[in-house]
Design a protein around this nucleic acid. Sequence first.
DNA 1: TGAATTAATCGTACATTTACGATAAACAAA
DNA 2: TTTGTTTATCGTAAATGTACGATTAATTCA
Lengths: 123, 123
Amino acid sequence: MKRTLLAVEYSGEEETIAVFAKALGHPVRIKILKLLASQQCCFTGELTELIPMAQSTISQHLKALLEAGLIQGEINPPKVRYCINQESWAKAHSIFEAFFAPDRVFGCDCPIVERAQDDMCPS
Amino acid sequence: MKRTLLAVEYSGEEETIAVFAKALGHPVRIKILKLLASQQCCFTGELTELIPMAQSTISQHLKALLEAGLIQGEINPPKVRYCINQESWAKAHSIFEAFFAPDRVFGCDCPIVERAQDDMCPS
DNA sequence: TGAATTAATCGTACATTTACGATAAACAAA
DNA sequence: TTTGTTTATCGTAAATGTACGATTAATTCA
């Protein structure tokens, strides 16, 4: 992939949101998180019984969630227990909350206009 | 790509979160959204001045945000005004809020144990 | 020691994403 | 009509994502 010479700079917040969001960007991972969140005790491989996907595929999705920090696993041979990482969960909660806070968003009054009016935009 | 015979079924909520999250899953799109959210008036191509990326790439990212419904554009030739789609924004806000609500998540008391104890997990 | 069980990892195939430059389309202004 | 401005789309290349089956690794149980 060709890359631009000047790399785009991202703030920590931008990177963090993107990492969390990317991990949430597949419905099966949402399903897995919901299952884990609803378990009183942490999970093992019942996921393969609940989700009709190859064991290796589910393991791959678990790895993605692990790497984003949203879950944690505890080896308990031959099983592994997964559960929500509460700290990251809280962090994701607050960062998304702040991002979507309505007061951060200016109202968009842009009407559908026939013609641009130069004085409509400050810039 | 080989597909499993039994397709996995997703709830509307799972799909919706995944769609929004996928759109948020790249830092440049977070940056774009922040820029649009902070503009009093809607945006056009100042993005290309603020973000050192090819114009076509930015257009591509805008398209992704459009398709997820997070922004809207108004043709105002030869410029296009983009702004946050407030309705979707509010929807994303509430759906992420509900998803991350701490009371949805059971506490994970799973200790790191030497050996599995059968009575630890209900299932 | 030798099964059995569970989950990660490997290898692979195909789809999607991401970036670029070039081109096309839409319109205003000269 | 021609020119300039702005943005979308096309074509392309490389990276990443997603799914599978097969294999490997770790540990328990017989």
